[in-house]
Amino acid sequence: MHGEYKVPGGKLVVVDLEVEDGVLRDVRVAGDFFLEPDEAILAIDGALEGAPASTDAAGLAARVTAALPDSAVMLGLTAEGVGIAVRRALAHATEWSDYDWQLIHESPQSPALHMALDEVITTEVAAGRRPPTLRVWEWDSPAVIIGSFQSLRNEVDPGGVERHGVTVVRRVSGGGAMFVEPGNTITYSLSVPEALVSGLSFADSYAYLDDWVLGALGDMGIKAWYQPLNDIATEAGKIAGAAQKRMVGPDGGPGAVLHHVTMSYDIDADKMLDVLRIGKEKLSDKGTRSAKKRVDPLRRQTGLAREQVIDNMIASFRNRYGLTGGEVTAEEMARAETLVRTKFATDEWVARVP
């Protein structure tokens, strides 16, 4: 069995192993990390040899940590990363390069239609009728997107929404509210087979699916990192928030994961504070300043036009994993438009948590 895991902010860990009588055998750990002293790699292999195949990633990491000499130095490698790579091997996880990725980047669409397209496309990936897909959104109007479990009245100021002509929609994933305007936001979705994140915890899957965009930002001179549970941050502040939804496959079989990210290219902080209820903190000047500073736009950090940032991100993904152009099919669009009418544009869905 073979498993790979890229340590967030670190290096690739590769594990090859066999399972005999329910325990790990012939374990070999490799990768492009740095490790001192040389014999520490043998200690890692030995720590995993004979471990029950049912041991979780934390238990495997504990075995590795206990076996390493006090003098061991790991750069780009963690005991937790080794444990995750083992679990991915045992789960027969796939890798990014195992797939033919498709790009969808079409004309501006309504907020409710974007919500519906996420559901339809990810369902198609789960059913095996569509390849793994990167979809870059374009917005036709300003919107507030609230998480699946958020209270509408707690998150949205109805007066501000009316003043600024903002549409309120609810997405299928959890997480917090996002304020977006055309031209000021970069939003994308990854719809991926569940096998790509096999062996990863829910939290680890966020870091794993965010890794490519951290590299893309780095190519543009931005040192960014994954900040648990679902943020992408820089020294200047948060620049993006992610959310996920797992969807089961046909007949309850292996499904797909929707991982979507909203990045702040530019932001009208005053308008954001007028349409979102920030909470009691908003009542003080200090709180208002804090809320405005919390999200730091990509426009200021890159100095690039929004379209150029998007082009750079797409090019980075293509260089890493390959990416061919695609489109929403007529059947997918028809299903999405039906979902808009029956779900995403209805008061029952938007206010399902009043």
Rank of each mutant, 00 (worst) to 15 (best):
T78M: 07
D26W: 10
Q150S: 07
T302R: 01
S173F: 07
H259F: 11
L304C: 08
S148D: 08
Y206R: 00
F34N: 04
I314S: 09
G253P: 06
L77N: 08
A291L: 12
V328G: 03
A58L: 10
S290E: 14
E119P: 06
G175M: 12
L152E: 11
A116N: 04
G10L: 07
L60R: 03
A72F: 06
V73Q: 11
R129A: 12
R130L: 14
S54L: 13
G249I: 04
V161P: 01
K245R: 15
A233F: 04
T342A: 12
A66C: 09
P37H: 11
G175R: 03
Y321D: 00
I121Q: 02
H2V: 00
I239C: 00
I104L: 14
D268F: 04
W101G: 02
V120Y: 07
D38W: 10
V136R: 02
G325F: 07
R130P: 02
T94V: 01
H164S: 05
L75A: 13
K282E: 15
V257L: 15
N230S: 15
E327Y: 09
I267T: 10
I146M: 08
S191G: 13
T65R: 14
V161A: 08
S107M: 10
I84V: 15
V29N: 08
G199I: 02
D231A: 08
V295D: 02
D211N: 07
T234G: 01
N230Y: 12
M115V: 04
P108F: 14
N184K: 13
M272N: 05
E4D: 07
A195E: 15
L12V: 14
D56P: 05
